[in-house]
């Protein structure tokens, strides 16, 4: 009985002796492969730092690759966006630009991207859409959302779920073309009642900058009413209208065509801004990863050097002790 108690006590003492420094025990628990360090060698572990360095290097590789992909996609889509810029200008010249128009049924068409990791373009368009919704809200007015793209949907569904009329995703699976966009515009026009459509998108300016923009499209009835009342669209009455049975029929065709053209340009501009924003976001994160890697390398080398120095000191002092 007493012997057993003594043995148990002895074991406890021996475990205390076996782990003379806490660093060693920590290391052994983290990296079991390095178990065979002989007793008394007090080297500092570099395993954790090495693992960290490897993972940072891998992340940097991925972000660099994403930047390259975004750059090549940007080049292709930027040309198309710039070529489509002529498309909406005749409509603005004819029907003017009326963001301040005060109508009952406002539909906000928010354009965003399907994929993330592209800086702030999606939250910018969501913020703008919310602000326009607030600006055009009133007791007898209603504001609805039509959402293009996964990211704006995820953000707007949280607080304005009941106002979302349609959400369309996976727009950019195939390269954007006019036919596809006009079919989509047709879908929106068929399923939504509106007096004014407000398209919110990011206009591409340069790789590092994009401008949140809102384009306004009025329904044919509102156009006709405004034209008769004078005001901003007063010029429209001086135009002779050819083709079609009635004036309202032509105006309907005109506004539908306007919507598809403006939407086409808006979708392209937003896609270009997305690639530009992704490129600069990935560029900065590659740079950050590089900085981090430099810091870690410095730490790693210092630690290694420190352990070598310690070992040297131990050997030399041991030798001098023997001599003396």
């Amino acid at each position: 009985m007493a012997m057993a108690a003594l043995r148990r006590e002895g074991k406890r003492v021996s475990t205390l002796i076996a782990s003379p420094n806490p660093v060693n025990s920590l290391r052994s628990s983290l990296a079991p492969s390095e178990e065979q360090v002989s007793f008394g060698v007090r080297s500092i572990s570099t395993q954790i730092v090495r693992n960290r360095m490897k993972s940072v290097k891998n992340i940097q590789k991925i972000t660099k690759a994403m930047k390259m992909v975004a750059a090549s996609k940007l080049r292709a889509i930027q040309v198309r966006a710039e070529n489509s810029r002529g498309l909406w200008q005749p409509f603005t010249a004819l029907l003017g630009d009326t963001p301040s128009i005060d109508v009952k049924k406002n539909v906000i068409v928010t354009i965003s991207s399907d994929k993330g990791l592209c800086g702030g373009i999606n939250s910018t368009s969501v913020k703008m859409s919310r602000a326009i919704h607030k600006l055009n809200s009133g007791p007898d007015k209603e504001g609805k959302y039509v959402i293009l793209g996964e990211k704006a949907k995820a953000q707007l569904i949280r607080d304005s779920k009941k106002d979302i009329e349609i959400s369309i995703t996976e727009l950019q699976k195939n390269p954007l073309n006019y036919t596809q966009v006009s079919v989509m515009a047709d879908d929106i026009l068929k399923n939504v009642e509106f007096d004014a459509l407000r398209i919110v998108y990011n206009k591409f300016q340069s790789v590092v900058s994009f401008l949140p923009t809102t384009a306004t499209i009025l329904s044919p009835e509102v156009v006709e009413k405004e034209a008769e009342a004078g005001g901003k669209l007063g010029d429209l009455d001086s135009y002779e209208i050819e083709g079609g049975e009635t004036k309202s029929e032509v105006l309907q065709n005109l506004t539908e065509f306007q919507f598809s053209c403006v939407l086409f340009n808006a979708v392209l501009e937003n896609a270009t801004s997305e690639q530009g924003a992704r490129m600069s976001a990935m560029d900065s994160s590659s740079r950050n990863a590089g900085d981090m890697l430099d810091r870690l390398t410095l730490t790693y080398n210092r630690t290694r050097q420190a352990s070598i120095t310690t070992e040297l000191i131990e050997i030399i002092s041991g030798a001098s002790a023997l001599e003396g």
């Binding site: 909406w88 603005t92 003017g96 963001p99 326009i132 923009t213 809102t214 306004t216 403006v262």
Partner: peptide, 11 residues
Amino acid sequence: IEPPKTPLSFM
């Protein structure tokens, strides 16, 4: 928030 641009300002 800054007001968004409108198409007229790009023409």
